[in-house]
């Protein structure tokens, strides 16, 4: 049986207490929420904190509510709660979809929003046991010096494998971070680094305290996920597409897009926005040509590497197909809503 290394387990009930515990534990302390990311990593000795601080008893971090027309979500909401919530399904369908596409029902009953947003980057040279990694002389992300995905590269290319993060970046959510120095509010896009090791801008002692979603006022978003199986699997490609339709457009069929963002998951060490793809959609009615142009724009910079399931050239080709399908869904959602 794979077992966890020894550690001290703490269960604070307030943010202040959690921060204090982390300060006491120092760099060997780690926060945990659902545990579905941290514990497997600990069992394979990727992380070996000596103090694990659970955030699940901190009341402020659970539940969600509307504040100033915006939804504010606690990071310890489970993915099941998120995807089952009628409010989220209604006003933030893409968030519910992405949450529902994470792993399995069992894991979603434990895994949290915050955990998925802060998910450790993944790589099939890294997500292996200690003994396996020894056989390849380890890798840059843990215990080694080289990134085997790109041996001449100075950086680690582990992949951002969150389903919800690309959606948060696409819809322009903000993360509220609380640390010993106080609070800060950061746009989701600025919370991620394109680096497999330092993939979060959040400091280790900071806690993701809330996720603030924009008011559902005339924008729409979808999320499409590519993976081998309908459950268990992390995304090898995620496409989050967000558009803002022109306000008060009279034409029922042919509304116009005033702003758009396409964000890819599973192709870089962070959710990767493709600004060119968003740009070509502006002013269009999401007609086939516009979709094709945006999909082409999304395809070009997409640079999958040999560190997940499937061949990388196929994964790159799929960027075009999945971007197209995501945008087609947005168009048909528009038509349906207008009916």
């Amino acid at each position: 049986m794979l077992r966890l290394p020894r550690f001290t387990y703490l269960q604070p009930t307030s943010l202040a207490e959690a921060l204090r515990m982390k300060a006491d534990a120092g760099p060997d302390g780690s926060y945990v929420a659902g545990g579905t990311d941290l514990y497997p990593n600990m069992k394979r000795r990727h992380q070996t904190p000596t103090t694990v601080i659970s955030l699940m008893q901190v009341k402020d971090l659970t539940g969600w509510g509307m504040r100033d027309g915006r939804c504010v979500m606690g990071p310890c909401v489970t993915l099941t709660e998120l995807s089952d919530s009628p409010t989220v399904r209604q006003s933030y369908a893409a968030v519910a979809t992405a949450a529902e596409l994470v792993s399995t029902p069992l894991l979603r009953n434990m895994g949290t929003l915050g955990g998925n947003l802060c998910l450790d980057t993944r790589c099939n040279y890294y997500n292996q046991s200690y003994e396996w990694r020894k056989a390849i002389d380890f890798c840059m992300k843990k215990d080694g010096a080289i990134c085997w995905v790109a041996p001449s590269s100075p950086r680690c290319w582990a992949v951002s494998s969150s389903d919800v993060a690309p959606v948060m970046v696409a819809i322009g959510a903000e993360y509220q971070l609380v640390g010993p120095e106080g609070e800060r509010l950061v746009p989701a896009a600025r919370c991620y680094h394109n680096d497999g090791i330092n993939y979060l801008t959040k400091q280790p002692d900071e806690i993701l305290a809330a996720v603030r979603l924009p008011a559902p006022d005339g924008w729409d978003a979808v999320y499409h996920k590519l993976r081998r199986r309908g459950s268990f699997d992390f995304p090898v490609l995620g496409v989050a597409a967000w558009v803002r339709w022109e306000r008060g457009s009279r034409n029922a069929e042919r509304g116009t897009i005033v702003d758009a963002r396409i964000v890819l998951g599973g192709v870089a060490s962070c959710p990767q926005e493709v600004p060119e793809a968003g740009a070509v959609l502006k002013g269009t009615a999401l007609d086939d040509e516009a979709i094709a142009a945006a999909a082409e724009a999304a395809y070009r910079p997409s640079k999958p590497l040999d560190n997940t399931d499937f061949e990388l050239s196929w994964r790159k080709q799929m960027t075009r197909v999945y971007a197209t399908r995501a945008l087609q869904e947005l168009r048909s959602r528009r038509s349906r809503r207008r009916e």
Partner: peptide, 16 residues
């Protein structure tokens, strides 16, 4: 090395 010695990456069909 075995590329994928795990139940996650060795793809056994699920109910879906």
């Amino acid at each position: 090395v075995h590329k994928i010695p795990s139940l996650l990456e060795y793809k056994s069909p699920t109910t879906l």
